[in-house]
């Protein structure tokens, strides 16, 4: 009664094509990051990506350990329940973010053009 039709193939092709185009977009060159901005209960703090360091942030009743190493930033450990922030991986290009919902911590990479004093020029 119901056989595969030409329209089905069109739908599958359209979905795969969209996936391909979106995938290609992810290869566009990104602006290199210069700063890491960390927003938590305590407000927003900016750190230079060029300086390796560990940052301990306590927010929303949870403690996160954020590491800046070799121009990339990531969450090294967290006592939040879902650990999604750990799995979001390392970020280094302007506009990339890691968000920990349970603790309300937002990590965002800022480009060279933006600085902690002029946050309205957020790159990306």
């Amino acid at each position: 009664m119901r056989q595969i039709r030409l329209g089905d193939l069109f739908v599958i092709l359209a979905v795969l094509l969209t996936a391909g185009v979106l995938f290609a977009f992810s290869f566009l060159p990104k602006e290199a990051g210069a700063y890491l901005s960390v927003t938590s209960d305590a407000g927003e703090e900016s750190y230079l990506l060029s300086e390796n360091r560990e940052i301990t942030v306590t927010s929303g009743g949870h403690t996160l350990c954020i590491v800046i190493n070799n121009q990339t930033a990531y969450v090294a450990s967290s006592d939040c329940p879902d650990k999604v922030c750990l799995h979001q991986g390392k970020i280094s290009a302007a506009g990339e973010t890691v968000i920990c919902v349970p603790s309300g911590v937002v990590m965002r990479i800022l480009g060279e053009g933006s600085h902690e004093d002029d946050n309205d020029i957020v790159a990306g």
Binding site: A19, L22, S26, T97, I99, V101
Partner: peptide, 19 residues
């Protein structure tokens, strides 16, 4: 929820899975 467009980089994989 995450106030970020970077999650969209995940969409291509999900679309292939949808197909």
């Amino acid at each position: 929820l995450y106030a970020s467009v970077s999650v969209f980089s995940y969409l291509p994989l999900l679309l292939v899975a949808s197909a």
